[in-house]
Design a protein around this nucleic acid. Structure first.
Length: 569
RNA sequence: CGGGGCGUAGCACAGCCUGGUAGUGCGCUCGGUUCGGGACCGAGAGGUCGCAAGUUCAAAUCUUGCCGCCCCGACCA
């Protein structure tokens, strides 16, 4: 493709609205343009990258035996009500009514549609297992789109769904998909981690996320030297088994805290460190009020708390319920004298003379100690923090910011039961299909690749997803010898099936070199008068910056050598 | 949805406090000189100053309301 005949609007300056490297560079290199918050157009270069990524995904999915389909983006709201997710979807769904008054949802994901589809067409165990996938635009009304293409309201997702007769089949498919994903991300040039995760609102039992490290990601992963790896949502820690130091110095004392409800307010007013306060939160677990006590500088992890309590369902109490349970308005709860079960974090076991609410309006207690209240149980009920003991019991946890690029789930029968995907087994019994689902954020791969592969000058595309394999740059477009040679080279390489961008613009060499570094095509072929005299061109690798002179006639051979290099796959 | 910031030419920004002919750099067009890492000279084009209402003889500038965008947080399949 000739630069002069396409649209690559590079920018010299950083757009002020961009902060993440991938956002700045995608804008500067003319890959994307924003239409509105979280909504982007892909220009020729950006679109080519997406196509490359999609090509790799398709290739690997097909190779694994999955079959591609295309489902609608427009879903009748009825279907979502059937699965029970219409409500859970909440504000994130983009829904509207047509002229007949029928409500539609722009598909945020496709479990419902695929289950409906397969449920209607697959009737026998003989048809299973079956894995279908699609590559399609999803819509989610994100409250806060950010970092360019990392979090958007409209994005391309590869979503796959497996249907099996039994758990064993699901396990096999899940495992296979994990391997497919590893191949896909490797071919896209990404360094990723596989992290155990929380299935969240998808339902189901098990899920793993494919994460890349990235300062602008929005997920956090806990790791330890011992190799522990888990999403922050479910990361556990070891029991610090803190031993109380010495004797308890002070006597329990009540003090006035008019209108000071939060840890922050009290910490500020009385110069007490949050770590020497205990936060008490009231939850409703299986319909009954319980209290959770953690140190003032931590956050309750509801999933862990629910596990410790052994409850089926759990939610935060409303102010009325808090008043009932503690006898005080919100903000003054404490474990001392509470009638409801108290669940405390391990941290509390190691605390002496701490501050808590007094269960009275505008009052707190100080010099609280373990002996002042009765805990139903101690356990790990807060989110882990940097420096916590690793769950294996040795070493510390570290938190890393990551971006999720893929997620695989074992769904089980969550959708096949609610939406209806049942088949007859060997015994003629009607049973629900066992499902798995597997997603990849296509646009995020583009962003992740830029985040991982760039320098101050611009992008350094990995071979596999570069928009072009090589870029020819003429040093002086006014020199007819240069233009002739470059033109012929361009024709020849193109004819040989190579994807080549030819910068034939009548710009100064410096401008073209800088643009070439910006858009980051892996190989730059510089054609100039100087080297042409010796029948040579210059070949520069964007990744390493290495430059070598190659005979003009040998360029094609040079590339077949690259093509066989192992990075290419 | 809560907190903060910003909206002036394609991009980056000044002007606003103290109201009075809308500016700078880059980019763009034309002519010329140049041509191996973001050239130079000359001539140009391009703006309802986010929108609306108000104050005023007069509003980019002051007041109010709204809209949009970015960042932090909440949320997140």
């Amino acid at each position: 493709m000739r630069w002069s005949q396409t649209l690559i609007p590079t920018l010299r300056q950083d757009p002020k609205d961009a902060e993440a490297a991938s956002h700045k560079l995608a804008l500067r290199a003319g890959l994307i343009r924003q239409l509105s918050s979280g909504v982007y157009s892909y220009l020729p270069l950006g679109f080519r990258v997406l196509q490359k990524i999609i090509g790799i995904i398709r290739d690997e999915m097909n190779r694994s035996g999955a079959v591609e389909v295309l489902m609608p983006a427009l879903h009748p709201a009825e279907l979502w009500k059937k699965s029970g997710r219409y409500e859970t979807l909440g504000e994130d769904k983009i829904a509207f009514k047509n002229r007949a008054g029928h409500e539609f949802v722009l598909g945020p994901t496709h479990e419902e549609v695929i289950t409906e589809l397969v449920g209607g067409s697959v009737k026998s165990f003989r048809d299973l297992p079956l894995t279908l996938y699609q590559i399609q635009t999803k819509f989610r009304d994100e409250a806060r789109p950010r970092f360019g293409v990392i979090r958007t309201k409209e994005f391309i997702m590869k979503d796959a769904y497996s249907f099996d007769r039994d758990e064993k089949g699901l396990d096999a498919n899940y495992h296979k998909m994990s391997e497919v994903y590893q191949r896909i991300f490797s071919r896209c040039g990404l360094t990723y981690k596989i992290v155990n995760a929380d299935p969240g609102m998808m339902g189901g039992k098990m899920s793993q996320e494919f994460m890349v490290e990235c300062p602008y990601g929005e997920d956090r992963v806990a790791t330890s030297e011992g190799g522990y790896l888990a999403s922050l949502d479910i990361a556990q820690r070891g029991n610090p088994q803190k031993v109380l130091a010495g004797t308890l110095s002070e006597k329990l004392e009540i003090f006035d805290t008019p209108n000071l409800r939060t840890i922050e307010e009290i910490s500020h007013k009385f110069k007490i460190k949050p770590a020497s306060m205990a936060k008490t939160l009231i939850y409703i677990a299986d319909g009954k009020a319980v209290a959770a006590v953690i140190s003032g500088d931590s956050e309750v992890n509801e999933g862990k708390l629910r596990k410790l309590i052994g409850a089926e369902s759990m939610r935060q109490a409303e102010s009325k319920e808090i008043q009932e349970a503690t006898g005080a308005p919100v903000g003054f709860a404490g474990p001392v004298g509470l009638k409801i079960p108290v669940y405390a974090d391990w941290d509390i076991e190691g605390m002496v003379d701490f501050v808590t609410g007094a269960n009275q309006k505008d009052k707190h207690l100080k010099n609280v100690n373990l002996s002042d209240f009765q805990a139903a149980a101690f356990g790990d009920i807060r989110y882990v923090k940097e420096g916590d003991l690793a769950p294996e019991g040795k070493g510390q946890l570290r938190l890393t910011t990551t971006m999720e690029i893929g997620h695989i789930f074992k769904l089980g029968t969550r959708y096949s039961k609610s939406v209806g995907a049942e088949f007859l087994d060997e015994k003629g019994e009607r049973v629900p299909a066992i499902m798995g689902c597997y997603g990849i954020g296509v646009n995020r791969i583009l962003a992740a690749a830029i985040e991982e592969h760039h320098d101050e000058k611009g992008i350094q595309w990995p071979q596999g997803i570069a928009p072009f394999e090589a870029e020819i740059v003429t040093v002086n477009q006014a020199d007819s010898g240069t233009v002739q040679a470059a033109d012929r080279l361009y024709q020849e390489l193109s004819k040989a099936g190579m994807e080549v961008l030819f910068d034939d613009r009548d710009e100064r060499a410096g401008v073209k070199f800088n643009d070439a570094d910006l858009i980051g095509i892996p190989v730059q072929i510089v054609v100039g008068e100087r080297n042409l005299k010796e029948g040579k061109v210059e070949i520069k690798r964007r990744g390493t910056g290495s430059v070598e002179k190659v005979d003009l006639v040998a360029v094609k051979g040079f590339f077949s050598a690259i093509a066989e290099a192992p990075t290419r796959k």
